[in-house]
Design a protein around this nucleic acid. Structure first.
Lengths: 354, 354
DNA sequence: CTGAAAGCGCTTACAG
DNA sequence: CTGAAAGCGCTTACAG
């Protein structure tokens, strides 16, 4: 089989130079004479030589592999993240090694990552316990939590993280709903143990409080479309006690809420009920929805993650840093227009649009 | 830093055994005495030892890494594929190394994959030229094309592939539209150079021909939502010459077609126009759409891909095989009900549902 | 079952 | 600039 298993020694022999010369030719920045380099390149070409990155890693102690742990790729937010992250890393000569967290065997997962001697880790799995991050940090491998933070515990080292502005987003969403004159505002939570949900809910409640309101109703959707639909049915079981606005902690859930309202409960959005989400996933601007939401900007979040990671890899020192990436409110059409009396107390539950 | 850079020699010293004994303890199937194994395990635990997979790969000649080349993760079909594939491979002790094809530098991409000594490659990028597959095959690395086939050229070796039943799907979709009494049937193509589009269109035209019809109109959407929307506007520019049914070569495009029809052109689906797609992506069964489509079954396709790949890796022999995975027609509500006269000639363009 | 030793394919001081 | 040599951390015949 041509091209199979050719090593730098083969190339050296073919070119009539030392093996070191071959290595140097393929090491950026190493000093090789022009003539030598030319001979090596010719031989390499002829033999179809590619340096063995595994052997190189063994000696340099750098694999240029970043471990990526994901759990729910069905989350509409992640495909774009994955593509950006992979691309961005690739541009710097790093590549992602994928690990899927199955909830069950997170120990085996860490072991595998350590075995591959990954240079760094991006943790994008909601479900994963902080133990994983701890263990990798203990092994001296930089870890960046993506779209989540770790609950601080006494004695535990801090772990770097990059996330959207959940608290501020929640607050702005609440303000927006208040401005639009809503007074029966419900919240559908994501996974209750997740930092994203905690922060979004906190911000939202703060925002409501600024308008002297509190949550009218609350249900749990677990960041899952089916659960969110179920939560919606529960919230709207009684017409009399139904909310006039819903904040779902993710776009994924918000879209399910809208669908359930429109197609199953025959409730008009936004005429009868306003719905807002969080993330600004691509689907949220589909014409069928045009969801009002708070953006988590993929590119800046990826950029921040890569910066944090590479900075630690290059310096060789673990330095914990929490980055919050600013996003903005995207007002579209799933929230009704302003009522004449936009003070909360006097808000009219009717639709002023038409 | 604890746990940093501990090798089998460190463990051997700590346990008072030879380095070979340590290696054997971590090699499934190797013969080690129970006492030795226990000592080794204890020492390994104490030192936080994990065998270096890179060093192992160097000597075994197997990296247990599969290169995955993707190009458009925005395609709604791929997130599920990626998750399944990664999970399935992980169960067999393999992991995916991600490569994003940027259209521009596919040579550098192949080089990188060869450098990492991947054991196999899954090519999921539409855009990538066949040259890539050729080169990897030439290097003795098993390649499986996912969701595409390579145009056969004289002298070029065949490359394995796994795909859905595009031709049959296209034909069944055409039959379905004919049964529903349509007579002005349009097609919106994906990327015209892709094998998926070629096959789906061929099957569709065959199906129409069986009902003595041919394409009423044709436009190109390039598997892109915006382009598909544009194509829809072009197709429906003149009400008189507008189609009464549209087959978009992917669900992604079909959903965009429906949105454009409903929200921009005020055309009712399915009352005035039926729309069908291809893939059966998760979004196609969202209540807002309930798209009639032809399924590409993710799990079986992934399973076939893994089988093809691992079989070649294990045997060490490249064996080209083309697998077509059966799917089924998913009839939902974007196609109108049967007309009384279901013969094509006499089909009524009115909606018989209500 | 166990250990000593060779070797996988590289990088990188060390001399020259 | 160039080569000889050591060594990264493993696996695996080869003896015993």
């Amino acid at each position: 089989m041509p091209g199979d298993r050719v090593s730098s020694i083969d190339v050296a022999r073919h070119a009539g130079v030392s093996q070191s010369a071959v290595s140097r030719t393929f090491t950026p920045g190493a000093s090789v004479g022009a003539a030598t380099r030319a001979k090596v390149m010719r031989a390499a070409q002829a033999l179809g030589y590619e340096p063995n990155a595994l052997a190189r890693s063994l000696i340099t102690g750098r694999s240029r592999i970043i471990g990526l742990v994901v759990s729910q790729l069905d989350n509409l937010f992640y495909p774009a993240v994955l593509e950006h992250l992979s691309q961005r890393l690739q541009a710097d000569g790093f590549h992602l090694l994928m690990f899927v967290a199955d909830d069950t065997d997170s120990d085996a997962l860490v072991e595998k990552m350590l075995q591959y001697r990954v240079d760094g880790i991006v943790l994008g799995a909601v479900t994963l316990s902080s133990a994983l991050a701890q263990r990798c940090t203990a092994a001296g491998i930089p870890v960046v939590l993506f779209n989540r933070v770790m609950a601080r515990r006494r004695g535990s080292p801090a772990v770097s993280s990059v996330r959207g502005d959940n608290v501020r987003g929640g607050r702005l969403l609440a303000q927006h709903l208040l401005e639009r004159g809503h007074s029966r505002i419900a919240f559908i939570a994501g996974r209750e143990d997740s930092s994203t949900n905690l922060e979004r809910e906190r911000g939202f409640i703060q925002g409501l409080a600024q308008g002297s309101q509190h949550l009218f109703a609350r249900a749990v959707g677990g960041y899952d479309a089916d659960q969110a639909a179920e939560a919606t049915r529960a919230l709207f079981r009684s017409r009399r006690k139904a909310p006039d606005a819903v904040f779902a902690a993710s776009d994924q859930m918000a879209l399910a809420v809208i669908d359930t309202l429109r197609h199953q409960l025959s409730v008009r959005v936004p005429e009868e009920v306003s719905v807002v989400g969080f993330d600004n996933v691509p689907q949220s601007c589909w014409p069928a929805y045009q969801l009002t939401t708070f953006e988590q900007p993929v590119a800046p979040m990826v950029e921040a993650t890569v910066t944090l990671l590479l900075e630690q890899i290059r310096s060789g020192a673990l330095r914990s840093q929490s980055l919050i990436v600013r996003g903005q409110l995207c007002v579209r059409v799933t929230t009704r227009m302003r009522t004449r009396a936009s003070s909360n107390r006097l808000a009219q539950p009717t639709d002023p649009r038409s």
